Amino acid sequence: MSEFFTLLKGGNKPSLLAAVMNTVIAIMKGIAFFFTGNVAMFAETMHSIGDAANQYFVFIGSALSKKAPTQRFPNGFGRLLNLVLLGAVLVVGIMAYETIVEGWHQLTHPVEAEGFIISVVVLSIAIILEFAVLYKAGKEVLHEAGVKGGIMAPVTTSFGHLNRAKPATKLVFMEDLVATSGGVLALIAVLIAHFTGFLAIEGAASIAIGLMMFYVVMKVFLENARGAIGETDEQMVNHIAHVLLDHPGVRDIKELEVVKEGEFLHVETKIEIDPELSIKEADELQDLLAQLILSQPSVDDVLVTFDADDGETHWKHLSTRPESLPPLREPKA
């Protein structure tokens, strides 16, 4: 049990913050729905409950994925995060279904809700809180991508660097983007229904929120299904190829694999070197290159093997280094 709580300290912090915040928001919205019966408020309550449950799963999964390899599981637990996220999206999927069903009922058989002021106040507060979580998640996206920006960068520049964020951070960002957008949509629907009497708009808003939730479900499911199987990170393959070929001791790259393991990357490479090097020199070069690769973003495990240079060029698909990656890093002394 003590190991479990120790691992929790290394869990994804944005997901924990988002989970706690969405729990508070879900309680607020649930109370408001109880007193008003507003369908748009019901949709937002389901959305926040789904997000909170999902993000608690993500936090625990990200923590457990950092558990050290054991004799029974020698490859470690990195992909456990992908499996947890696959399970977590089922919760959001169920909530999305309930949201759409309730929205359809309101759309086809509109019922006037009570407590207009309560709905507006609660939704306004929820939008502010959800935007705060979105902003924090955006900052974490930029941090994990190694990118600096101005005060608005977390909600502008972060979109272009989502592919470099950890799976848990990416999920929190996407969920709270949808949550903030859904809150604004629900608020607009409540205002229109109150001032125009067009009650069906609340049902339409509920359906739209449910569909946005389903989008997150499909996006997260597909990404983590690939991660659970073991997906190559093409950008980091190119990045590490640059790192290796820039070193004077490397003649060529024969093989290079960079596989996502949850939040981290596993790297295996076979490198061609000068066949005249002594065993000691080759051993020192192997250690140096391993440390160089380990110092790159998100790399947690590396295996470097050597082969004698045969005079042929094997690595021919080196492309221009993408701007979305951080600068090349040197290993710490």
Rank of each mutant, 00 (worst) to 15 (best):
Y135S: 02
I188T: 12
L185F: 09
I192W: 04
T180C: 13
V172A: 01
K148W: 07
V111R: 02
R164W: 08
S158N: 02
K136L: 14
A145T: 10
R164H: 11
E102F: 07
V91Q: 02
A126N: 00
P74D: 09
V89L: 10
L90G: 14
H161S: 01
V121G: 07
L83K: 04
I128T: 06
Y97I: 15
P154V: 14
S65R: 00
G150R: 05
E98W: 06
V141T: 07
M174P: 00
D176G: 02
H109Y: 04
V121H: 05
P167F: 03
Y135W: 12
E98I: 11
V172T: 09
L90D: 10
V172S: 01
N163K: 11
G76L: 11
V122I: 12
A113F: 06
F173R: 04
E98T: 09
V92T: 13
T180G: 12
N75W: 15
G115K: 06
R79M: 14
T180A: 14
S119T: 14
A68D: 12
I100S: 08
L191T: 13
H143D: 14
G146W: 03
I118D: 13
R79V: 14
I128M: 10
L83P: 02
A189P: 03
T156L: 15
N163Y: 05
S181R: 02
M95H: 03
V89I: 15
H161I: 08
F131R: 00
P74N: 07
A165P: 07
G183N: 06
L185A: 05
R79K: 15
V111C: 00
G76Y: 09
A189S: 12
G182H: 06
I188Y: 05
L187F: 14
F73M: 09
V111H: 08
E102A: 11
T180Y: 05
V172N: 00
L81T: 10
L90A: 15
G138Q: 04
S181Q: 04
K170M: 15
V172P: 06
A132M: 07
K139H: 12
F77G: 08
L177H: 04
M152L: 15
G146D: 04
V91C: 03
M95E: 10
S124H: 02
A165M: 09
A96R: 00
A113N: 03
K139I: 11
E144M: 06
G183V: 11
K148V: 13
A179V: 13
K166Q: 14
A165Q: 08
L83S: 09
M95N: 08
I125Y: 02
P69I: 00
G76D: 08
V91F: 06
L191Y: 12
I125V: 13
L80P: 02
G78N: 03
L90M: 15
I118G: 09
L162V: 06
E102Y: 12
K66Y: 05
G146S: 07
Y97E: 07
P74S: 05
K66D: 12
A137V: 08
K136D: 13
A132G: 10
A126I: 08
L129I: 10
